[in-house]
Design a protein around this nucleic acid. Structure first.
Length: 595
DNA sequence: CTAGGGTTAG
């Protein structure tokens, strides 16, 4: 096809008196259009096709232009044309071409190009080898990538970094760290790769630790690594660390690009500081969909449904189109704030006005919204009529709604289905046992507990963390290893005395039935958030906000106790749950007791 | 004219 077009161009009258300077002009035009970010690839291609016999340089430029495009397919097509026309390669041809293959994760083409590289004698070119390594990694061919890496005679820093990144992207974090440690000379990209690897694998503390080592090694952070670290801070709820990064950015007058701004907003929001999140958000110019979505999510997890929806409208006024994730955030906002009608409207408009397909997550949000409002039949109906099979999350959401609205028949049915579907999930057994207990069917409840025990299913350990002067302290259920455990126990005893004075009764009904009543009390008082709160009260000035981050959802007893503690000690306690924030103040919680 | 690193939900 391409050849044909060129033949047509050749017959064009202007081409009859083509001069050398005209050729240069075309060359420059192609160059400019194909390479500049604001360039016009289509136009470059048109001009390219008017050139009778473009040299390799021009072909390379065109391939490069395509390799940077959203759809780099054209690079491969052009390369085929090049082969077809017997155009000679240069060492510049392969890196661009392989970049396109990498983007498209095209293994077959990568392998073919590999053999071309060998045949044409470019195997020793480190640029081509590194590009090839990267393309193999993107196709998931770790073994081929490593094999190639081992054979590169003169490995440079890019070879090492690409191989580390190959392990990271294929979820082999340990191998990545091993290779990183062997890397002879490291730059900021080397460090970023392992740090990002830690972040994606959930090792947030490791990420921060490695970042500190990076600074000790004298490597200057750039905005990419800071974006990763901010994400780690957001996940940990490490506000002080995050603020330090923000100050670093300001002090060094670093440009706040989309990703950095987005992560700053996300960090403040997830660390419980919605005011600063909004402050940063407002200063960001040219906000893209990521940034808007991060802020909407921030409002959502704080239970600020109205604000989230208002921002959703502002976003569209600003001409930014919401994507599927934006809708998940907006719907989550509705579910946490109990906005039934708004949620329904959003869910419908998503397909109608934005032609976005609803994923199972969106249906999940709707089930939560309907479930919270007590529309259980409607929620069940939605699950039945949705185009995909329900997963455990969605049925779990309906089950929670059943418990809240005391629809035990449906609850029991769902509980059984869920255990069958996911027999290693402890929470499902507990949900079902609790449902039986609620209807007085103790023997059934015991049976479910026993089934869980027999199958060796164990609860995911609850963990709460609290940041104190830049250090994140973690507490696990029934873990006594913290240095200050003695003081924490004494503090908790004192808290208990005052709690009982205001009429608090430990809620032990939902606990393991084979424990004595006293043991049950001990067990719930070892819940990680209670340890963290006691620790926070010991180590901070009276009146200081106490911020706790929990990996699971807060239990009802802890929720009640924390409300009372906020009143007794006149302090604000912010607990970040698995799904949202709870701001405890004057004996009340911002979630309105629905979570 | 070359190669490698980041973000929003659940």
């Amino acid at each position: 096809m391409l050849k044909h077009e060129r033949t047509e161009a050749n017959s064009h009258p202007y081409d009859q008196n083509r001069t050398s300077s005209r050729y240069h002009l075309s060359q420059q035009t192609v160059n400019l259009c194909a390479l500049s970010t604001s360039g016009d690839l289509l136009y470059a291609r048109r001009v390219f096709h008017t050139i009778q016999s473009p040299n390799t340089f021009m072909w390379n430029i065109m391939i490069k232009g395509y390799s940077n495009d959203k759809n780099p397919e054209g690079a491969i097509l052009l390369y085929n044309q090049m082969l077809h026309n017997s155009i000679q390669h240069t060492e510049y041809t392969f890196p661009f071409l392989l970049k396109a293959c990498a983007k498209l994760a095209r293994l077959e083409e990568t392998e073919q190009i590999h053999s071309h590289i060998v045949k044409t004698g470019f195997s020793s070119d480190v640029y081509s080898a590194n590009s090839l390594l990267h393309a193999y990694a993107k196709s998931g061919k770790l073994v081929s990538a490593r094999c190639l890496f081992d054979r590169i005679a003169e490995r440079d820093i890019v070879s090492w970094n690409s191989m580390v990144d190959a392990y990271v992207k294929n979820k082999e974090i340990e191998a990545a760290c091993r290779l990183f440690n062997q890397t002879p000379v490291k730059n900021v990209i080397s460090w970023t790769s392992v740090i990002a690897g830690c972040v994606t694998s959930g090792s947030f503390k490791d990420a921060i630790h490695i970042f500190q080592k990076m600074q000790i090694a004298g490597v200057i952070p750039d905005s990419t690594v800071l974006a990763s670290i901010l994400s780690a801070c957001a996940n940990l709820g490490a506000l002080d660390q995050g603020k330090w990064i923000h100050a670093y950015i300001d002090k060094n007058q670093m440009q706040i690009d989309e990703a950095l701004g987005c992560n700053l907003v996300d960090m403040y929001a997830k660390c419980g500081d919605i005011v600063d999140a909004l402050k940063v958000f407002r200063t960001i110019k040219n906000k893209g969909v990521h940034t808007w979505t991060a802020m909407i999510t921030g409002f959502a997890i704080h239970g600020c449904g109205r604000e989230a929806l208002e921002l959703f409208r502002d976003m569209q006024k600003a001409g930014v189109k919401p994507n599927q994730i934006t809708f998940t955030s907006a719907l989550t906002a509705c579910s946490h704030a109990g906005l039934l009608e708004e949620g329904k409207f959003l869910f419908e408009s998503m397909q109608r006005s934005y032609s976005l397909t609803s994923s199972i997550e969106h249906y999940g949000c709707m089930v939560n919204i309907l479930g919270r409002a007590g529309c259980l039949t409607e929620a069940e109906e939605l699950i039945k009529t949705m185009p995909m099979n329900p997963n455990a999350t969605i049925l779990g959401a309906l089950l929670s709604a059943c418990s809240i609205h005391r629809n035990f028949d449906l609850g029991k049915r769902l509980g059984k289905t869920l255990i069958e579907a996911d027999p290693n999930h402890a929470g499902r057994y507990i949900q079902l046992a609790t449902t039986f207990a609620a209807t007085g069917e103790w023997d059934q409840a015991v049976k479910v507990r026993k089934m869980m025990k027999d199958r060796g299913v164990t609860k995911f350990p609850g963990c709460s963390s609290i940041e104190l002067s830049g250090v994140v302290h973690e507490f696990y259920v029934c873990d006594w290893s913290h240095q200050q455990m003695k003081e924490i126990n004494l503090m908790w005893d004192r808290i208990m005395v005052r709690l009982r004075q205001v009429g608090y009764i430990p809620m032990t009904g939902n606990l393991l039935l084979d424990l004595e009543e006293e043991e049950k009390e001990t067990a719930i008082h070892r819940h990680s958030e209670k340890l963290a709160i006691a620790f926070g009260l010991i180590n901070s000035e009276p009146g200081t906000k106490i911020r706790v981050v929990k990996n699971l959802r807060v239990c009802e007893d802890c929720h009640t106790a924390t409300k009372l503690i906020s009143e007794i000690y006149s302090c604000e306690i912010v607990v970040r749950d698995r799904t949202r924030f709870h701001l405890f103040k004057d004996g009340k919680c911002s979630c309105g007791d629905y979570w």
